[in-house]
Amino acid sequence: MEIKKAAVAGTLESSDCMVTVEPGDGTVELDLESAVIRQYGKQIRKVIHETLERLDVTDAKVTVVDKGALDCTIKARVECAVYRSNDIKKGLPWGGVIR
């Protein structure tokens, strides 16, 4: 999917994360800030990249501010931000690329 415009999903509440996607410069650029970066930084990056790959996002600037969110939350926030950047609100592919 293409990132058509900047979009945000999530909050800065504890156990949530805020994901911002913006049009990129030809690659995926990830900026991660996390309350648990020392213990879960690698895992969080992995989840974000896997989710983007599944959505076929190859060109985006992604900023994630994580407050200790679980993997399922991070996935959901990334998915939501990507679809919002495309203004897609209906007919989401539940069970397809959104799992």
């Binding site: 648990v36 020392r38 213990q39 879960y40 930084g41 690698k42 895992q43 679980l70 993997d71």
Partner: peptide, 10 residues
């Protein structure tokens, strides 16, 4: 099982 095993802090 809920949060994943943490990496050891360096």
């Amino acid at each position: 099982s809920i949060v994943g095993e943490p990496e050891p802090v360096e």
